[in-house]
């Protein structure tokens, strides 16, 4: 019950354990893929540029890694402007 209340009132886990988990999620994903936060940011920019060259982007594009177990996939979501 306490855990439930904590989750409701404190959606973003600010405990040191929560921070450790967030940092680990990121660093383990990068370690496993042999990449880094900087490389990911650069790649994200490049992907968006390629799309923008051919179509008009509307809104905020998202490029992120999603993981399931020890496997990972890239999730690209780019909202496009219709005519």
């Amino acid at each position: 019950m306490l855990d439930f209340l904590k989750r409701v009132f404190n959606a973003e886990d600010k405990s040191s354990k929560g921070q450790a988990n967030n940092r680990l999620r990121l660093v383990l994903t990068h370690d496993r893929l042999g990449t880094s936060g900087l490389v990911m940011d650069a790649m994200k920019e490049e992907i968006i540029q390629v799309i923008a060259k051919h179509m008009e982007i509307e809104g905020v594009p998202e490029v992120k890694i999603i993981t399931e177990g020890r496997h990972a996939a890239m999730d690209i979501s780019i909202p496009l402007k219709g005519r």
Partner: peptide, 18 residues
């Protein structure tokens, strides 16, 4: 420390290491 939110729990470790 796990209970007070200052140490990774067993569930956390299993989630990360699979």
């Amino acid at each position: 420390m796990v209970k007070s939110g200052d140490m990774l729990s067993i569930d956390d470790l299993l989630e990360h290491l699979c």
